[in-house]
Write a protein that binds this DNA or RNA. Structure first.
Lengths: 220, 220
DNA sequence: CAGTGGTCTAGACCACGGG
DNA sequence: CCGTGGTCTAGACCACTGT
């Protein structure tokens, strides 16, 4: 098989399965059997097992002892759940980045947001998502909590993959830059309490939009 | 070695290493070598590897590619970090349990808190911690977010282990039941906004107390 | 009690890092 | 360039599930 790249087999298997689960190529409820997968990827049981355990940690598969791994339902509830966790981490990261922020960071945030605004007219999905990611990592760059950062990054990547499959609503794009501006304002004013609320608002907006797009994608 | 119990080797190794890291038996900065550990536990490389990867996921060891696993510093920053994550999850779990709570749950919470109060005079550490755990799992029992629950449980267990090594300050015990009462009151009044604030207050209290006890334990 | 899940072995192999 | 880290193999084995 195509286990040719430099990456370890368990990582490749993990990425492939994740993509296939999220896109629905492997339907919800499918039983993932060790033997089948080992056969499919041309590897021994151990790398398959590791991939499945990781996906279980991500919440994409469920496991009952001695009853194997099963693909969960990628439904609205699941999307809500990962958004809730990611948002909680973002509130935390934003909060403990505050004391360390420099003026130059605010300039950087403004510049990124202007780039997003410029692209929004042309709906260039991947670039917008990349810039949005950059905006938020800049916002959280001084966080001193690597555990929270890791959880954040895990679900950011997952939502990114979902977003690639669903796209944005057209009115969401203007909302993003507006909400980023609000966040920048609250930082300049040094208003810590507001920042958390604005981030939650921003993330709830993102979630609502993705849920809407997801429902549309499902109904096709 | 004593790989006799029914649990898988990687779990036993994980638990042993976690305990030893938290108690300082394996000092911060120690390089954990696959070969040494495999030898020590009388197993092959794979279970050792799995245990280390899990501990890395918990944040107890760091790993640089091709430079092995290293025990992190169990210091105030680390304790703060895991408390922040756990607290964020608890706020989330409490928030989305609210719509499903029944009156009987409130009675149960009151009963648990009374038991804690009764024990507090005798400073029975393990029982108090168990009841505290029960109080909070009751508080979050209707959460519909299994991903958040799993993260919560992971760090709850870690903090529990730390607490076993440090104990409570004597004045903390009264504080716990008081803050639990405040939480119960806010639920009875249906005050959602307050609940999150009270949980954060409760958890910050727990963190400050553990940090204080930790410093004392360190200085001995 | 057959089938499968879950784990472990005892090495082998390659890639990388540091002297 | 040697040592070690990191991963994989190709089975074996036991525990549990469900028919």
């Amino acid at each position: 098989m195509s286990m040719n790249v430099g990456l370890p087999a368990y990582e490749q298997i993990r990425e492939i399965l994740r993509e296939e689960i999220i896109t629905g190529e492997i339907p919800s409820g499918t039983n993932l059997k060790k033997a089948e997968l080992a056969d499919r990827f041309g590897v021994s049981p151990m790398p398959v097992r590791e991939a499945l355990q990781w996906l279980k940690g991500e919440g994409l598969v469920s496991a009952l002892p001695h009853r194997g791994y099963k693909v969960i339902s990628i439904d609205e509830d699941f999307i809500r759940n990962i958004f809730e966790v990611r948002t909680a981490m973002e509130e935390l990261l934003a909060r403990n980045s505050i004391p360390h922020r420099a003026d130059s960071d605010i300039d950087k945030l403004i510049a990124i947001n202007e780039k997003i605004a410029a692209l929004s007219n042309h709906e260039q999905l991947n670039e917008i998502v990349s810039l949005d990611k950059l905006f938020h990592t800049t916002l959280y760059q001084y966080s001193t909590n690597p555990i929270a950062s890791e959880i954040y990054e895990k679900y950011r990547a997952l939502i990114y993959t979902l977003r690639k499959n669903c796209g944005f609503s057209s009115n969401r794009l203007a909302e993003i830059t507006d909400q980023h501006s609000e966040i920048i304002d609250s930082i300049m004013k040094g208003n810590e309490g507001d920042l958390e609320k604005l981030i939650r608002k921003h993330k709830n907006g993102a979630m609502d939009d993705l849920l809407q797009r997801f429902k549309i994608a499902q109904s096709i």
